[in-house]
Amino acid sequence: MTQDTRPTALITGASRGLGSALAEQLAETHHIIAVGKTTGALEELDDRIQAKGGEASLAPMDITVEAAMQQLCRSVYDRWGKLDLWIHSAIFSPPLSPAPDMPEKDYDKAFLTNVKATQRLISYVAPLLGNTGRAVFFDDPRAGEAFFGAYGASKAAQIAMARSWQTETAKIGPMVKILTPRPMPTAVRARFFPGEDRAPLTDIREEAARLLPEILS
């Protein structure tokens, strides 16, 4: 299979963590469209992908910028006409705080990134996926935990929206999957649990390898 005929995989949040690990492993079979805010991290991902004989298109963009996401999806359509897979791993993790003291700017950014941007992306990406593509979201059930007000509420809203889309498309496609990764030593988790012993956590690349068959099945 040549690079031009490989299926396409859009990964939002590909610069670090699980998104980056999945992009690297998927590049063995897919052309990766890697979206992230950190250009240097995307370039490092591209180097790893190329070293393994894969190919990626880098999109250093902020998913909360509507015009950028419109441009991205238009570019995907112009080049490939469709998408085979969308993995949404982009997330904003606000600092933990008691509910009464939650900074409004952090709350607003959490909902802008985790909910509004996701809703926008669903509307833009769904036509590219058509009836045969698939979309993947990752749950992190923190809703109701102490100090997780902004993150927990915004993540719960994101997953509720994904579950609605999953139910709506169950018979007609695209296939929508919601997976719950094991705890990993990501930068997000380090901000939440700075003193945690990270040794028992699942290696990010191992978790990507475990999830990949489920994503593609």
Rank of each mutant, 00 (worst) to 15 (best):
Ala160Leu: 07
Gly144Trp: 15
Val136Trp: 04
Met161Cys: 02
Asp140Glu: 13
Phe147Asp: 15
Ala135Ser: 11
Val136Tyr: 04
Glu145Ser: 12
Glu168Thr: 03
Ala156Pro: 12
Thr167Phe: 12
Gln158Asp: 02
Ile159Arg: 01
Tyr151Thr: 09
Ser164Thr: 11
Val136Ile: 15
Lys155Thr: 08
Thr169Asp: 01
Ser164Phe: 02
Glu168Gly: 05
Pro141Arg: 15
Glu145Val: 13
Gln166Ser: 06
Arg134Gly: 05
Lys155Glu: 10
Asp140Met: 09
Ala153Asp: 08
Gly149Ser: 15
Ile172Glu: 15
Ala150Glu: 05
Ala170Gln: 04
Lys171Gln: 07
Ala146Asp: 10
Ala170Cys: 06
Val136Phe: 00
Gly152Glu: 08
Glu168Tyr: 05
Met161Ser: 01
Ala157Phe: 04
Ala156Phe: 07
Arg142Asn: 08
Ala162Phe: 00
Tyr151Lys: 14
Phe138Arg: 13
Ala153Gln: 14
Ile159Phe: 00
Pro174Ile: 06
Phe138Trp: 07
Ala162Thr: 13
Ala146Arg: 07
Arg163Asn: 04
Ala146Asn: 05
Met161Gln: 03
Gly173Glu: 11
Phe138Tyr: 12
Ala143Thr: 12
Ala146Ser: 10
Gln166Ala: 01
Gly149Leu: 02
Trp165Arg: 10
Ser164Asn: 08
Pro174Lys: 03
Ala170Ile: 10
Ser154Glu: 00
Gly144Tyr: 14
Phe148Asn: 09
Phe148Gln: 12
Ile159Ser: 01
Arg163Lys: 02
Arg142Thr: 15
Ser154Leu: 05
Arg134Val: 10
Met161His: 00
Ala153Thr: 15
Thr169Arg: 11
Ile159Gln: 01
Glu168Asp: 03
Tyr151Asp: 03
Ser154Phe: 05
Tyr151His: 11
Lys155Asp: 03
Arg134Met: 09
Ala135Phe: 02
Gln166His: 00
Ala146Phe: 11
Ala150Pro: 14
Ala150Tyr: 05
Phe148Val: 11
Pro174Thr: 10
Ala135Asn: 07
Glu168Ala: 01
Asp139Arg: 11
Ala135Asp: 09
Phe148Pro: 04
Ala143Trp: 14
Phe147Gln: 10
Trp165Phe: 08
Asp139Asn: 13
Val136Cys: 05
Arg134Thr: 14
Arg142Met: 13
Arg134Pro: 08
Asp139Glu: 15
Ala135Gln: 12
Ala153His: 14
Phe148His: 13
Ala150Asn: 10
Ala143Leu: 10
Met161Arg: 03
Gln158Arg: 12
Ala150Gly: 09
Gly173His: 09
Ala156Val: 04
Gly173Trp: 15
Phe148Lys: 11
Ala153Tyr: 14
Gln166Val: 00
Tyr151Phe: 15
Thr167Pro: 04
Gly152Cys: 01
Gly149Trp: 11
Ala143Asn: 14
Phe137Ala: 12
Ile159Met: 00
Glu168Val: 04
Gln166Phe: 06
Ala160Ser: 13
Ala156Ser: 14
Pro174Ala: 00
Phe148Gly: 05
Ala156Cys: 01
Ile159Thr: 03
Met161Thr: 13
Ala150Asp: 08
Ala170His: 07
Gly173Thr: 03
Gln158Pro: 06
Gln166Pro: 05
